[in-house]
């Protein structure tokens, strides 16, 4: 039985010296590849998918408007709601929201500002049209309908 008794008792400790390196690598990957979450979405937000999309380059020049049904119906009630920043707001607040965004941007860049409408696919076009009407009034003419990037099937 000498063959078996030679075997050491217990496992040798695994060298974990490279573990921090691996984790740091992951950390740097996430720091570079992701962006900070700015708002928490308070409405349903399953955005539609399209293939003819354009990526928005400069986040600074984008103001996002969320549209969808409220997640907290007891508080906000039924129907499509508009979320600006971190609040459920009404149509008439859209103007001030855009004006507030414009105040942070230098004058010559205002023309390049885009309004990103992130609307739930179940929401109705009427709500979107109301927003568009408001945006037209204050001359914020560049609009992007937010979509997922789909793959063209053909």
């Amino acid at each position: 039985m000498s063959k078996f008794s030679k075997k050491k008792k217990g496992m040798p400790a695994i060298n974990t010296a490279s573990l921090p390196d691996i984790v740091f690598m992951l950390l740097f990957f996430f720091m570079v590849a992701t962006t900070m979450r700015e708002t928490s979405v308070m409405v349903t937000n399953k955005i539609p998918t399209a293939t003819e999309v354009k990526k928005l380059e400069d986040k600074r020049l984008v103001s996002t408007i969320y549209v969808g049904e409220s997640l907290d119906k007891g508080k906000d009630g039924d129907g499509d709601k508009i979320q600006l920043n971190d609040k459920i707001a009404s149509i008439s607040d859209v103007r001030n929201f855009i004006f507030a965004k414009r105040a942070d941007i230098s004058d010559d860049e205002v023309d390049y500002m885009t309004t990103l409408i992130k609307a739930d696919e179940k929401s109705s076009v009427g709500t979107i049209n109301d927003i568009k009407k408001e945006l037209r009034e204050i001359n914020a003419l560049k609009v992007t309908y937010s979509t997922n990037i789909g793959v063209e099937k053909e």
């Binding site: 992701t34 990103l116 009034e137 937010s146």
Partner: peptide
Amino acid sequence: FFLVTTTMDIDAGISRRLPEK
């Protein structure tokens, strides 16, 4: 911490220009 506070999605969509007022 970074996993929780950041998102990976890139904003993309269909761009349209509204008619001028």
